[in-house]
Nucleic acid binder design. Structure first.
Lengths: 227, 227
DNA sequence: GAGTATTTCAAATGGTTGTTTAAAACAATT
DNA sequence: AATTGTTTTAAACAACCATTTGAAATACTC
C-alpha cells in the first residue's frame, strides 16, 4: 500500500484555502469550482477527487474551522462554570465572550486574513438550507446543546422560551455582525486584522447588554442594563 | 402614443412578486430567471423587457419595498424628536422601534407572508457586494444619514466612532435576526405571520439593551470601551 | 527496478445560466 | 381598416456550470 504522495496533502490544503477565500467572498452559489481550482493552482477534477463534490468541499472547509473553535468555546464555558460559585448564575458578559472571542484566535492566521475567516463564519447564515442543516448536524448541534444549557444557567429567572429567544438573538446578531463586515457603516477600515479582537469585544458587550435588557425580572423601561 | 397594454402592469407586478419569493427563498445567485418567470407565469424574455437584467430586477424589487419602509421610519423619528424636550437625549428603545417595527407593516400583506417579506430585508446581508453597494446608494444612504443623526442625539456622551459601532451592531443584528428566521433555534413556529410584530418588539428591546450596554458613561466591568 | 496504488491532467458530458433575436400578437389612434 | 407603438412569444446564443472519464504521470513498496 503506497503512502500518499507528498504534494497530495498540499493539493487538498491549497484547495481548502482557496475555497475559504472564494466562498467567503462570493458565497456558495456565487463561487464556481473553476474559480476555486484556478486560485488554488490545481486541476479542475481535483475537487471531485479529493472531496467528492462542491457540497462536500464546503462542508469540510467549514468543519475544519469550526471544530477547534467549538472546542475552545466549550473549554471556556467549563472554566467559567468552575469559577462561578454554586447557586450563582453565570456572568452574562463572560458567557458571551466565551462564544465570541475564540473566533479571533481559532483561525490559522498565517495565510489569508482573520477577517476573512471571521466573515466565513458569518457566511453560514446565507448558505442554502440543505447545507446549513448538514453543517448544523455535523459541527454545531453538540456545541449548541452545551451552550444553551450555560445560557439557562446564566438566566435562571427567564422561562425556557425566553431563553430560546435570547439564544436566537445572540446567535443571529453574532452571525450578522460577522457577515456584514463593516460595510455600509464606514467601518471597513476599523475591521482589519489587527482590530478584529477589539471589535469582537465590542460585539460581546453589545450582545450581553441585549441579553440583560429583556430580563422580565428587571423593571423594564429605563434601568435596563443592570441593577 | 398608445397607452400601455392592460396586462402590462400585471406582468411587471407578477414578476416582482415572484422575484420576492424566489430571491428570498434561494438568494440572488441561487434563483434563476427561469424559476422566477415560471412562477410568475410569464415568458422568460419578459425580465429583460420590463427590467433590463436580473440585477435590475432585484434592485427594483428591493427599492419598491424599502422606499415606503424608510418613509415610515423617518416619520417615526420625526415624531419622536418632536415629543422629546429640547436638550434631552432621544429615548433609545423607541428609537430602535422606529427603525424596526415598520418592517411588520410596510409590506403588502395580501399576497405572500410578512415573514417572507421580513426575511427579504435580511437577505440584503448576503447579496453580492456590487449589488449591496448599489442598493445602498439608491435606497439606504439617505435614510442612514438621517438615522445616524438621531442615534447621535440619543447617545450624546458617545464619541462619533462609538456611535458608528453601535449603528453597525444595530443594523447587522437586525439584518441577521431577519435573515435567519428562527432556524437553528427551534423558533420557526414562533415566527409565523401573526407573531412577526411581537418578535420585532423583542428584537427592539434586545438591540436597545445592547446600545445602552456599551455606554462609556456607565461604570463598566472592565471599562474596556473608553477611559 | 518491476509492479502497484495514488494523484494529476486534458478533454468531454449533459445541463443550466443570463441575454438576445426576430417574428407574432395585441391595443389604441387615425 | 390601416397604421403605430407596445407587449408577448418561441427559439437560439454563447458562456459557464458540476461532474465524469480514461489515460498519463507520479511516488511508493517489494
Amino acid at each position: 500500500m503506497p503512502a500518499p504522495r507528498k504534494s497530495a496533502a498540499s493539493t487538498r490544503e491549497r484547495l481548502l484555502r482557496a475555497a475559504e477565500c472564494c466562498f467567503t467572498e462570493h458565497g456558495y452559489e456565487g463561487s464556481s469550482l473553476r474559480q476555486i481550482t484556478q486560485l488554488a493552482n490545481v486541476n479542475l477534477a481535483a475537487v471531485n477527487y479529493h472531496f467528492s463534490s462542491k457540497r462536500e468541499l464546503w462542508l469540510e472547509m467549514m468543519e475544519r474551522r469550526l471544530a477547534p473553535l467549538n472546542v475552545e468555546r466549550v473549554r471556556r464555558l467549563e472554566v467559567l462554570r468552575a469559577h462561578t460559585p454554586a447557586g450563582q448564575p453565570l456572568p452574562l458578559e463572560q458567557l458571551c465572550e466565551a462564544v465570541i472571542l475564540p473566533i479571533a484566535k481559532a483561525f490559522d492566521n498565517r495565510r489569508g486574513s482573520c477577517v476573512t475567516a471571521a466573515r466565513m463564519v458569518g457566511r453560514a447564515i446565507s448558505v442554502p438550507p440543505s447545507l446549513s442543516r448538514e453543517l448544523n448536524r455535523r459541527s454545531l448541534d453538540q456545541f449548541w446543546g452545551i451552550f444553551r444549557a450555560s445560557l439557562r444557567a446564566a438566566l435562571p429567572e427567564s422561562s425556557p422560551v425566553e431563553v430560546d429567544w435570547k439564544f436566537y438573538f445572540l446567535m443571529s446578531s453574532m452571525l450578522g455582525a460577522l457577515a456584514w463586515q463593516g460595510r455600509q457603516a464606514g467601518l471597513e477600515r476599523q475591521m482589519k486584522n489587527e482590530n478584529l479582537e477589539p471589535m469582537l469585544r465590542r460585539l460581546s458587550t453589545f450582545i450581553a447588554g441585549g441579553l440583560q435588557a429583556s430580563l422580565p425580572a428587571e423593571g423594564k423601561r429605563k434601568a435596563k442594563v443592570r441593577g
